[in-house]
Amino acid sequence: MATATSSQTRNTVYVAIFAAMIAAMGLVPPIVIGIVPVPITLQTLGVMLAGALLGPIRGMLSSLVVVVLALAGLPLLAGGRGGLAVLLGPTGGYLLGWIFGSLVIGVLFKYWVLRQKSQGTRIVTGLLSILLGGIGIIYLFGIPWTSVVTGLDLGTSALGSLAFIPGDLIKAVVATLVAVTVHRSYRGLMR
């Protein structure tokens, strides 16, 4: 029983540190592209890394912890946002998408990417996993949510999110390289 409890505590601490990483990445000042201030933040990089490094359950819980703390009122989201309005507002779906995004990335890393032997195939499969989970799944929640909340049709809602795609692609590449490198030097993260 003692070992079961201690591994549970360790898992909790891992979840907490990745939640803190997602939150801390929101502190980095948003980069403004063009005239319209579209905040490109690093937070989804943290979401991607949580799934890729901790696996499905713990990765998902890390995102969930950030969402819960933000909804409870801590200004953890990019630009110091927080509170219940974030979920009710037009971009609330992306926040829910984080939770499922890190879950999907975690599943793919655990059962697909980490079973690849060579570094090259790990990078390719890892990038595909992160593109699917970190961009595909998050937008799958975010775009229909905006559409339902505002009454815009899906096409316009998707068009509005296009501005974030370049930043997200860069983050996906960085997350893949970081995850593959860390898994090589820090083995046994997902047992």
Partner: peptide
């Protein structure tokens, strides 16, 4: 509770 409070402390 431990996870939530540790997350805040780790930031």
């Amino acid at each position: 509770s431990l996870g939530l409070s540790l997350a805040i402390r780790f930031i």
